[in-house]
Design a protein around this nucleic acid. Sequence first.
RNA 1: GGCCCCAUCGUCUAACGGUCAGGACACCACUCUUUCAAGGUGGUAAUACGGGUUCGAUUCCCGUUGGGGUCACCA
Length: 482
Amino acid sequence: MVTTPTRVRFAPSPTGYLHVGGARTALYNWLFARKTGGAFILRIEDTDAQRSTEAHTRVILDGLAWLGLDWDEGPIFQGAHVERHRADAERLLVENKAYRCFCTREELEAQRQATPGGVDLYKYDRRCDRLPPEEIAARVAGGMPFVLRFRMPDAELAWEDAVHGRIGFHGRDLDDLVVLRSDGTPIYNLAVVSDDVAMRITHVIRGDDHISNTPKQIALYLALGAPLPVFAHVPVILDTDGKKLSKRRGAVAVGDYQDRGILPGAMRNFLALVGWSPGEDREIMSPAEMIELFTLEAIQKKPAIFDTAKLEWMNGQYLSRMSGASLAAPVARELEKMGVQVRGAHLLPPYIDAVKSRARTMLEIAERVAIRLDSRRAVLDDKGRKLIEKMGDGYARALVLATDTLRGLGEPEWRAEPILDALKQRVEQEGMKLGDLLQPIRVAITGTTVSEPVNELLEVVGRSSSLARLTAAAERNGASGC
RNA sequence: GGCCCCAUCGUCUAACGGUCAGGACACCACUCUUUCAAGGUGGUAAUACGGGUUCGAUUCCCGUUGGGGUCACCA
């Protein structure tokens, strides 16, 4: 059996950040290409010169690279091929599948307003298509500006969608679409079809919001005599309140999650599962496993809500599978951004291992490492303050006791085990409970009531800094007299 | 409004005519414990509604309702 290699593309327009919905579409294209041994092509749709910028292109490329979605061809800039787009449009005119329309924007707007039954019913009435040839020739000769309009066929325009099944429109419900602007530049729908044909795209995997463009594009494929690709429309991603993800509420750009300390592997894994499921209750998957299991047919038909709580859970899962050493470099970068001095990323792993299991993002890891590295970062929070209030004088007394006990340990014995032994012994002598001594130490060292076991905390913070913090905290709370 | 798409726990989903409707996140309880997590155990929680078809419907068909997309010389 001979199969033609599949060719898919991700075609964002560089008019903004890389939206998580777009990233997921890119991921599905990538998974499909890798699964079928085909090519994943990146095309930048920059025909809207007004809004397209190089910076946005950069952001999109960086975002894809961060997610590990490597492309086989491109980036191809749509703007570089306007000559071909124009040629295709001209061909439609020559073959009488398109016509010149001399209506100005103002006239069109007036026609729309004058629609009997309301503007909702408006459809271009093809008045320019009825112009006599000599009139057209005269207007063209006179330099009158015109757009090229594609004559929408009065026919059924349907296709078998890989995720939705059969979807059908009728040409009579569609307007004659403009394919070439009066300045000669191509319009999106023409450019897309022209490019997809030229790039020999076999599967168009894109957002649901393009369903209504598809019949128009099918009409263009037909008019251009090109074979139709397989279409697969993946549903949109919605916000927690069921509305379209918007910039106002929370993060929508993949860069936002990168900044929050989400790992690319976790993001990729989570994104794959928003709208697709491999079945068998599989959730944590390597890229290879996802490629193995991926099919277009298993993509969900209904829009999905983006649940950041689950994303963070997944990030925690990935975090727990990673060593402190492998996290050192990214954490060092976070610390740098926070303005915390680090004398080399190689010193970080013990600190990261100490805090990792209690954190869900790299940002949290960095914050907690910072507290252990730098006493000025250990600011009292609500939980810490509450404990101090609750303990009253007992707080300072416990700290003095702890300091006194720990001072007995020299630098070489400053290890988790001996520290715990010493504290336990002291607690027994004093007839206290272990927690009564440990919790104040935790607050004095970190400013909060949450941390790894106190003896491990003391070890990682080190002897001199630990003792200094304990002493300072005791003094701040009126223990000078003891 | 026209056209189109969609509908299982709060959320992501499994089921492709017969299951006590399964899993995960979140939540609650218990457990572990040096606080908090993590882990372990258990629990609350869903087939939007109404008609068909069928011995039997989450599943197939129709309608209602609800949600979404799209209707540019934007992409």
